[in-house]
Design a protein around this nucleic acid. Structure first.
Length: 183
DNA sequence: TGCACGATGAAC
DNA sequence: TTCATCGTGCAC
């Protein structure tokens, strides 16, 4: 497997989101290597996107989104689940891609359909916030075999408060994959 | 310093 | 449809 480079993330967020589908999320922790294939993502397009956390501006929590691409943005939601994002585009652009579901590949014994469960199954927590994905213990890699699949576009989940931004088709998933969280 | 509210998931 | 549960952001 080939680890994705900084350049991969330093591109248009929607492009990165779609290309992350089918890639492998790898996390080494306590001597265990957990791997999941990314099957569902959502794109968050920066401060002008009212559904994105960066719409609130540069704060202590969102500063990672404003940083350089290729870093993990992990935060706690509803007081009990973590959500894993990947920062995209140039520093200051404040865009990111939310990983919503993966397909279990290695050392994953829990369900992974949904951002909260995904983080739980891959042992992702706040410790990994701002973690550089160019590192050797937490990164995303391209598959050896580039399997073909169709991409389905849908509105994002849980962002009804964001006005017309809630209607945009910024959620992408692999058609027919049964590990997708919501069809 | 206080408080309302989630990029959720599971149960009822 | 409701609830568990708490960090964050913004109003006092």
């Amino acid at each position: 497997m080939q680890k994705l480079s900084r350049k991969f993330y330093d591109r248009d967020t929607i492009t990165v989101a779609k290309e992350l589908l089918g890639k492998y999320l790898v996390h080494h922790t306590h001597g265990i290597e957990r791997i999941g294939k990314i099957v569902e993502v959502e794109a968050y397009l920066g401060p002008h996107d009212n559904a994105a956390h960066s719409a609130k501006g540069l704060t202590d929590r969102t500063k990672v989104m404003f940083g350089p691409p290729g870093h993990a943005y992990v935060y706690l939601i509803y007081g009990m689940y973590y959500c894993m994002n990947v920062v995209t585009e140039r520093e200051g652009h404040a865009s990111a891609v939310l990983l919503r579901a993966v397909e279990p590949i290695k050392n994953i014994d829990q369900r992974t359909q949904g951002p909260g469960l995904l983080c739980k199954a891959l042992a992702i927590n706040k410790q990994l916030n701002a973690h550089d994905l160019m590192s050797d213990n937490f990164y995303i890699a391209a598959a050896d075999d580039s399997a073909r699949f169709s991409i389905v576009k849908k509105p994002r989940i849980g962002v009804d408060y964001a006005g017309h931004w809630a209607k945009r088709l910024l959620r992408f998933y692999i058609k027919g994959n049964c590990f997708v969280s919501k069809l």
